[in-house]
Amino acid sequence: MDYIFHIIILINIYIILTTSTNLLVGMTNLLSLGQAAFYGLGAYFSVLALMVLHLTIIPALLFSAICTSLMSLLIAYPSLRLKGDYFVLATLGFQLIIYTILYNWISVTKGPFGISGIPSPSLFGLLYISGIYSFLVLSSVLAAMVIYIFYKLIHSPFGRALKGVRDDELSLLSIGRNVTSLKIWAFTLSSGFIAIGGCLYASYVAYIDPTSFNLDEAIFILAAVLIGGTGNIKGPIIGAVFVVVLPELLRLVGLPDSIGANLRQIIYGLTIILLMRFRPQGIAGEYALK
């Protein structure tokens, strides 16, 4: 049973990551290879909140979301002036920089040794969220909240304006909208919410190191979104379920982990290639990447 709960918690974490990424990739057509950096920043900021500032869980979540959004704001303005490939490159560069810093700034992040013994967060100082059940509840609540918020955002005038950016920037400019500021909103909101995933991950696993937030992870998050589908709510959720459940299925079939790890990557890779060719909007998505 615990095993299934563990899987559900992982799915919840990935739902938060993919749903947030969808706001950027699916709604605004901004392809980012830097999402793992914000995920990682969220995780490290939450460690700061939990271990140094001794915050309870809700302030810690807010703290890491806000700090990460502020960081993303620093990146957003310069990189959003760039178009197409250049934007992708800027996010890639940023991803690599953050990783290098997390890895090498040993006095603060402990570098490759990682930070262990992250304490169980408490809720209002009343009860401790430690066992798998409490994480199941916490992660489900957070995932549901993130889905709800993004549902509301996508169906609001703001979401409509983002769809406008995706469809036709020129036209949006001609009706007097500030396209850059819309993109900045999408960028910071996306990274703020992805930080919540990072915070959840850090407190659940109780140990983080930079390799969980490297370029491979960024590609993995992006792959999950693109496989599940872009531009609506259900696509990213399906993507999160797919990428978390597939390895477990391979394990159930009896493949040893050493083969399974490569095999599932190969399956992801092939899925992406085939989807891009035959169904670029993903399994359940609404809009293809432009």
């Binding site: 509301k152 005038p157 979401g159 304006a161 909208r177």
Partner: peptide
């Protein structure tokens, strides 16, 4: 240059001069 993937009505609404709800906090 109209918004191909928005509905006819949304194409009209998005062109409105009032941008109130387009700041996420307001919406």
């Amino acid at each position: 240059h109209i918004f191909q993937n928005l509905s006819v009505l949304e194409n009209m609404l998005i062109a409105d001069s009032n941008t109130f709800g387009e700041i996420p906090i307001n919406s």
